[in-house]
Amino acid sequence: METEYIHGYSTTEQKRLLGQSRILSEYIFRNIDLTNCQHLLEIGVGVGAQTILLLEKFPHLHITGVELSEVQLAQAKENLAMFPQFAKRYEIIQADAKKLDNLDTAGIDAVLFIWVLEHIPQPKEVLAEVRRVIPTNSLISITEVFNDSLFLYPPCPAVMNYWRNSIDFQYSIQGDPNVGARLGVLLSDTGYRDIEVTPCIIHLDKRSPHQRLTFLQYWKDLMYSHLDSMIQAGYTTFSEWEKVAAEMDILMENPEAVFYYNPMQATAKI
């Protein structure tokens, strides 16, 4: 059974995920090293956005991807079909990451999660299942949100209020918008070893104006992707969003603007 997804499954959102993967790739993949891995299990492929990047960045890699949502799975297959050069290097199947008994794990030597555990009510169950079925000594790499780390300058009260409401909303649908801060504990409690956890710092100011502008626009789009779900659940209103949008537009024009956010990344051995 699928849990509620904070961003929804609209065509607009599916396109946003593709753009997001490109914008975030230079930060996320600074610390993800799969050069010594041959067969990757990607948990939660979504629309295939990360899968495409992985196939590009690691040309030796074969990927088995699992995705629970039929809607996302269909879009992932469509997106990947646009890259016929990768056709023999991946397969994507529908599966619940908490029940991987039917997965062929032969040869898998690495497992990747990117923005997945935040949406799962019981992330320990998924980590325990992966550890149960994947061969010993395989690498696991996780990238996750830590939404309380957001900082903007000059202060943006409407944005920060909306952001806090989005955090509360995600908790209300059994997600965890700060799960990144708990990665070490989750991995330790489920029996992984050689655990390392590091912040993936995104700090943008006038030293990189183009990147800052790109990222602020991305962040505005990210917040907008929550809007319909948050309105329906009573966590915001459209008039509140208009204040958020106005503040973000002003911030994008301010040469003194600062953006700081640090997702968390963890690696471990099974």
Rank of each mutant, 00 (worst) to 15 (best):
L127N: 03
P209E: 04
G175V: 11
D205Y: 06
V126M: 07
Q217E: 11
C156Q: 13
P135R: 15
V244C: 03
V179P: 06
Q232E: 12
W241R: 00
I167E: 11
F151C: 05
D148H: 11
A181F: 05
L139D: 09
Q232H: 06
Y153M: 12
W163L: 00
M223P: 04
N161M: 01
V197Y: 10
F151L: 11
R207Y: 01
R207T: 09
V126E: 00
Y153T: 14
T143W: 12
D194W: 07
C156E: 12
I140N: 04
Q122L: 05
I195H: 10
D228S: 14
V159S: 01
L222D: 03
R193D: 09
D205Q: 04
Q122E: 11
L183A: 05
I202L: 14
P209I: 04
K220C: 10
T143E: 08
L186D: 06
A233P: 00
P199R: 06
D176K: 13
C156I: 02
D221G: 08
V159I: 11
F238Q: 13
I142C: 10
K243H: 02
K124V: 04
G180A: 10
C156S: 14
P177G: 04
I134P: 05
G234Y: 04
I142P: 03
V244N: 05
S138H: 04
W241S: 00
L227W: 00
A233G: 00
P177I: 06
T198S: 12
V185K: 15
T214S: 08
P135H: 10
M223G: 08
Y171I: 10
A233H: 07
S172Q: 11
A158S: 14
I173N: 08
T237F: 00
R131Y: 10
M230D: 00
S208F: 00
A233C: 05
I134M: 13
G191N: 11
T143N: 13
E125C: 05
D176P: 03
R193H: 12
R132N: 11
V179G: 02
I142R: 08
S149Y: 09
Q232Y: 02
I173R: 01
L152G: 05
I201H: 12
Q232T: 07
Y235G: 07
W219E: 10
F151T: 10
R207N: 09
L222Q: 01
S239N: 06
R164F: 00
A158M: 01
I120K: 00
K206L: 01
V179C: 15
V133T: 08
N165Q: 15
R164V: 02
G234T: 01
E129L: 13
D189P: 03
I195W: 02
E129N: 13
A233E: 00
Y235I: 06
Y218S: 09
P123W: 10
P135T: 15
G180V: 06
N137A: 12
Q174C: 11
R164L: 01
G184P: 10
I202P: 02
S229T: 09
L187K: 05
E129M: 14
N165F: 00
D189H: 07
R207F: 03
A233S: 01
L152Y: 08
W241I: 03
I134W: 04
S141V: 14
M223H: 06
I120M: 13
D194C: 08
T136I: 14
P177L: 13
S239G: 00
G184S: 11
H203Y: 13
